[in-house]
Design a protein around this nucleic acid. Structure first.
Length: 412
RNA sequence: GCGGGUGUAGCUCAGUUGGUUAGAGCGCCAGAUUGUGAUUCUGGAUGUCGCCGGUUCAAAUCCGGUCACUCGCCCCA
């Protein structure tokens, strides 16, 4: 262990970061529940095959970013690098086919061995939403609408742009892939080193290369939309019409492709320019072939994941913690009475607190630092009269309030 | 995995061509003010100058390595 440092790419979340983090999760839960998504939580580790079979052996995530380990029983396990595969596995393990469609929301930590950067960590956290067992474009529309609403309630739709594309079904995608490989193979000499590797592994990715030489080849490259067969085109049209009807704006980004093998048809990302090269804040798409690849029956699915740390950073300001009523007791008898009153207020839903040490001046200062709404001063004088001296910290006014009236007074 | 930048007190940072006890502001603690959060004043604490090694009479300063963060690439949320 090197010093008292957190492991590379991990971080402690506390103070303002924690308030931001919780706010993102709270908003997400609230919106997801209104959309009638139900909660799910799956294990943080799975058998390695759950990820390796579905994400694609050649994908970067599987080939070099997973935290794999063998447990004491010799099982090959992996810390989840994403949520979808685990939820899909759960759908089949639990026999949820009997319910037909399921709408789930979840959140939690993910693990990827990558080079850390701002907005990119080795342990990071995602919001996740999935609709399983629904092949209809209405599911695509709903899942995107959910993401849009979350961003809206977080106050950041203005800072993000929805990029939308269709990868088509298996047939369309294969036809396009072949055309693309043929085109780029004819221009091998002009391709960047990275893109030469992509040509073998994942030719679609050449489309979003940032290399200038690569980009120069794009205008004449075959267009994905041209290769969509009739069903794929009709599906995509239905999705676009649904979004239009909901006034959700998007740009059709023909170069948007996704790195994981299981995607088909709809692919989308909400992108911001405020986070440098980690601009994707929510990304997702349809994965009708995933559960089959895992060894289950053919089952449609669509979902997205959002990076909680990234969303938290985009939050314009940190949410404020609630303002407490703070007790300042003088002496042991007063302290005991104060604890009783504290308990009474807290039981009635009032945020209340009491410092443990210091003279009155110190306690007043701490109360002010804690952004107290009221300070309840309780000394021998007050104790005899059955009152607290309640100080309004905004106006500075102070008056005696009987123990019986305290609750009503601070709730007003 | 590749290329660039940075690392000095809790925080933001200064630190001259290497030179002797390493500084400021903010914050923190104590007191002026033994029942009151501002301001002011007075006093105080805190650094293995990221870490290890090298050069030198002498290193926060120069060199090498290493760790962490950061920007771009890759990839992705």
């Amino acid at each position: 262990m090197a010093k008292l440092q957190p492991v590379r790419g991990t971080k402690d979340i506390w103070g303002e970061d924690a308030l931001r983090f919780n706010h993102v999760v709270d908003v997400f839960r609230s919106v997801a529940e209104r959309y009638s998504f139900e909660p799910i939580s799956t294990p943080i580790f799975e058998f390695t095959e759950v990820f390796s079979r579905t994400l694609g052996e050649a994908s970067d995530v599987v080939s070099k970013e997973m935290y794999c380990f063998e447990d004491r029983g010799g099982e090959g396990l992996t810390l989840r690098p994403e949520y979808t595969a685990g939820i899909a596995r759960s759908y089949m393990s639990e026999g949820m086919q009997q319910f037909g469609m399921k709408k789930f929301y979840a959140y939690g930590p993910m693990f990827r061995y990558e080079r850390p950067q701002k907005g990119r960590y080795r342990q990071f956290h995602q919001l996740d939403a999935e609709i399983l067992g629904a092949p209809e474009p209405a599911a695509d529309i709903e899942i995107i609408a959910l993401a849009h609403q979350v961003l809206k309630e977080l106050g950041m739709v203005e800072n993000t742009v929805l990029h939308l594309n269709s990868l088509g079904d298996q047939e369309s995608r294969q036809a396009y892939r072949d055309a693309l490989v043929e085109y780029f193979t004819g221009h091998k000499d002009k391709l960047s080193e990275d893109s030469l590797a992509r040509l073998e592994k994942n030719p679609l990715r050449i489309l979003d290369s940032k290399d200038e030489g690569d980009r120069a080849l794009l205008p004449d490259a075959p267009k994905l939309s041209y290769y969509l067969n009739e069903t794929s085109q009709a599906f995509f049209d239905a999705v676009k019409q649904g979004l239009d009807a909901m006034d959700i704006t998007y740009i059709h980004d023909e170069n948007l492709v996704r790195g994981l093998d299981y995607y088909c048809h709809t692919a989308f990302e909400f992108i911001t320019t405020d986070l440098g090269s980690q601009g994707t804040v929510i990304g997702g798409g349809r994965y009708d072939g995933l559960m089959e690849q895992m060894g289950g029956p053919q089952t449609a699915g669509i979902g997205w994941a959002g990076g909680i740390e990234r969303l938290a950073m985009l939050l314009k300001e940190a949410p404020k913690p609630p303002r407490p009523v703070v007790f300042v007791p003088m002496g042991d008898a007063a302290t005991n009475k104060a604890m009783q009153l504290l308990n009474m207020l807290r039981s009635n839903g009032v945020v209340a607190d009491m410092g443990f040490r210091g003279n009155m001046k110190k306690r007043m200062k701490r109360a002010a630092d804690a952004n107290a709404r009221f300070v309840a001063i309780l000394g021998d004088n007050e104790l005899l009269k059955g009152v607290v001296s309640l100080k309004d910290m905004d106006s500075g006014d102070q008056q005696e309030v009987s123990f019986a009236d305290l609750l009503a007074r601070v709730q007003a």
